[in-house]
Amino acid sequence: MEPAKKIDHSHDEKTAKPKKNPKKPKKFLRKSTKEGLSGYLFMSPTIFTIGVFVIIPILYALYLSFNDVQLLGGIGYEFIGLDNYTRTIDDERALIALKNTAEYVLIVVPVQTCLALLLAAALNSNIRGKNAFRIIFFLPTVTSSAVLTIIFMWMYNPDGLINNFLQFLSLPTYNWLADPNIALKSIMIMNIWATAPFFMVIYLAAMQDISDSVYEAATIDGANWWQKFIYITIPILKPVTFFVVVMGVIGTFQLFDQSYIFSGGSGGPNNSTLTIVLLIYQYAFKSLDMGYASALAVVLAIIIMVVTLIQKKFFGEEKLHD
């Protein structure tokens, strides 16, 4: 009975307080609200920056996508409903861009994920000089993608390093830059080489988190190296793989700088390196057709969202750490 009494008592006190002290409402903010407010105040610089540079542009782009925007010689907006969106269906270049981007995502994401996993597994074992290897493998990620692209373009030159090397091995050589069938693949190779190490570091960190006891138990049961990798490492890394794949898909869908530099902004040869973001750039800044460019950007955002949701279903609703 005692505790109940106490509760009752305190309850009385609480309800009684306002009566005792009728001037309390003057301190108009409750403590929790006050703390919340100061929290928001601390966050306000960030909220302000995100608002100005992220939220407002997104809303504005949405608004633009429903308008025919006239920029040169007097700015004018004309509401045209969904016309910009229906135009994408008939736009052959948009379809080519979508096809190129999808091909790029479908090849680059699995390859770079597998490569990252293998590299991480190699570096997680007790080989000599693994720290040096970690640094060497990570270097491409540190390099600016524009610099990387230009260097690769030299190497891809018909008389360049790569063709010379292939010739030395008596393998067929390619016109890496100018052949429409090869150009996108050249960018793929370059990008896989540059991004895989970034995901490798993420895998490596997760692998070092896996408890040794699990492996020890498996060893006692007679599992070999390969079985441990397939049945222990990969399942435990599943949430990390989800993260790596999602980030990979988002990153590859947004391919722009490499194909821009490769083709000098044209998406050529023969539209083979034309990606959605490059197409958006061309419509926005070459044709100054902001309305249609915004509509394409919204379509891209929707595609990425849908693909991410599908992946979430595919990988299950697991959390990163349980």
Binding site: K34, L37, S38, L41, F42, S44, P45, F48, T49
Partner: peptide, 18 residues
Amino acid sequence: NKMLAAVGITGALFGTAL
């Protein structure tokens, strides 16, 4: 006091941003 500090810091940050 906490409130004042928050307002002050926010003001300063806003200022630089602007």
